[in-house]
């Protein structure tokens, strides 16, 4: 089932008045259950494309739709609700809320969704067990290693059962073993929960695991691979 569709998507920034064409006419589709990697060298536009898919940024031209609904026609409030209900984000720098403990970070989005305390607690504990971070429940981000923080970030992203998880360079700040272990977990979630994962990465071990691969160069799709 097609959940994301972009048509001639373009994004141009202005850096000190100089236009920077980060994304140039990208048309692609993402299907439910995809484990998709957007790869490419630095400056190829992969993070910009991920941000456009995640409605964190608006395209300069072209269209992007989620389950047939055009994102650029949505208000800020609708976009916010869309991100809350449909997406999960994993950032390169983890970006956990520093004043909340691990379990509070995981519960935060569930709370925004109005999920009851009992269910929040149950879901959080289950996912923390799955991700082997149960012992971190009461720790704050500054008390955790990078790998532990990223596991909490993964838990936060998937605990609401979103349609898509967008992961921007999720292994960039992790050592190979930790990165690999994290990818194992995400593959498991993809298979067990049918959550669509879209990665932006130039990490070979991420690229290797992608069942679909889009290689970008200069804001365009240079290569598309399905495995």
């Amino acid at each position: 089932m097609e959940i994301i569709k972009t048509i001639n998507l373009e994004k141009t920034y202005h850096d000190n008045g100089v236009p920077v064409h980060a994304v140039r006419g990208i048309s692609m589709t993402v299907h439910a259950g995809d484990f998709l990697v957007i790869a490419g060298p630095s400056g190829s536009g992969k993070t910009t494309l991920l941000n456009l898919i995640g409605a964190l940024d608006l395209p300069t031209a072209g269209s992007i739709s989620f389950e047939g609904e055009e994102l650029s026609s949505m208000s800020r409030r609708e976009l916010s609700a869309f991100r809350l209900h449909k997406l999960g984000f994993i950032f390169q720098a983890y970006n956990l809320i520093p004043v909340l403990t691990a379990i509070e970070n995981i519960e935060f989005t569930m709370m925004l969704l109005g999920i009851s305390e009992e269910e929040r607690n149950e879901r959080s504990l289950n996912i923390m067990e799955d991700l082997r971070i149960a012992e971190l429940a009461d720790k704050r981000p500054n008390e955790m290693s990078g790998g532990q923080q990223q596991r909490v970030a993964v838990a936060r992203a998937i605990v609401t059962n979103p349609s898509i998880v967008l992961a921007d360079e999720p292994t960039a700040n992790l050592d190979t073993a930790t990165g690999s272990s994290l990818l194992d977990l995400m593959e498991k979630m993809n298979k067990e929960r049918n959550i669509t994962f879209i990665f932006s990465s130039h990490d070979p071990q991420v690229i290797e695991r992608g069942r679909r691969l889009f290689v970008l160069r200069d804001g365009r799709i240079e290569q598309e691979v399905s495995r």
Binding site: L56, R77, S80, A81, R83, G88, F89, F91, N95, I97
Partner: peptide, 8 residues
């Protein structure tokens, strides 16, 4: 980040 994860 709060905006990204859906805080209105």
């Amino acid at each position: 980040v709060l905006m990204a994860i859906g805080l209105s």
